[in-house]
Design a protein around this nucleic acid. Sequence first.
DNA 1: GCCAACGTTGGC
DNA 2: GCCAACGTTGGC
Length: 165
Amino acid sequence: MKYWLLKSEPEVYSIDHLKKDHQTDWEGVRNYLARNYMMKEMSLGDLCFFYHSNSDPAGITGVAKVSRQAEPDLLQFNKKSEFYDQKSTRQNPRWFCVQIQFVKKFKNLISLARLKQEYALQKMALVQKGQRLSVQPVSQTEFDFILSIAEAGSRPRLDQSVSEN
DNA sequence: GCCAACGTTGGC
DNA sequence: GCCAACGTTGGC
């Protein structure tokens, strides 16, 4: 099992869209490295952080899982699509996408600023300067660490209410 | 809106 | 195959 991070602009497609749709084809990726991750390395059941980019605040909003392995991205054949690719043929498609399924939305988004503050995540791809790949691998350690932040953040602060009395 | 970082294109 | 020019991403 591998772990990933998928970026999406929430105004285009947010975690709430995914929750509503239940599952979606991750189409429109037009970067070879990102494509190769989807095509060659993603397997059924792999877990993905769902990241909102170009938003305020930017950050990780939840989890999805790979529900179908990579298949040709049909938008590349659609002349009306902004993702149409003249050089791609059905016999030899250039772009592929996986299908992902909603798993959960975090009660609170984990902001990029917060992630950058975490010593344990210093090496994470997402927090590196200039990192703009829309499909990124995440290590199991990073994945577990971030999940623990999400779960801690969604639990009532019992410790605080006790100490106040 | 700015701009740094990165990817792609195309002339040579 | 090099690299300048251009386009895109995405944080700030």
